[in-house]
Amino acid sequence: MAVRNVIITSLFTALIIVGSFIIIPVTVVPVTLQTLFVLLAGVLAGRKTALTSTSLYLVLGAVGLPVFSGASGGLAHYFGPTGGFLIGMLLMAAISGAAGDAAMKYQNEDQTLMKKGLVILILGSFAATVSIYLVGIPFIKFNLDLTWPKAFATAMIPFIPGDLLKLVVVIIVSNIFFPRVRSYLAVKDE
């Protein structure tokens, strides 16, 4: 693994962990920022780095390190009602990373993103956000044996405003940082 990849991966692992401690009161339900950093890892650093960072975050949490929201950790979180959202982060990282990698093909000469690249990033980030619910909602439904409407009402609807806000932040921030991070990663080690 190249030095740059090692550092970027550890940086995003750290950012995801820090994100789980930062609570933003968007609506009545406060949101944490770890999914925002999973999205940013994918979009800015690509699929491989995002998957590695997210996997490391999940492994560290599984071992018992207090990296999940509320400074908690342990394998039990994977079997609890919100376990699906943790596992869904991997899918989120893969989709946002794939979008980031695809958008790379549509860069101008100064490495800024073309409109097509930006559209790919927006669609990819949206799909990645939806994907976490594709895993999380069936998981909470079967874990607590809820009806589908109740599962959606409990685990999705209160979080939509927060997710929309995170999407906007990801798009703006990635548009600024995309050229810098990608050009940094593109340099090969001697």
């Binding site: 693994m1 550092i7 550890s10 692992t13 950012l15 590695t52 490391l56």
Partner: peptide, 8 residues
């Protein structure tokens, strides 16, 4: 990577 992450 893990060591660096914990330093970060």
């Amino acid at each position: 990577v893990i060591t660096l992450a914990f330093r970060f």
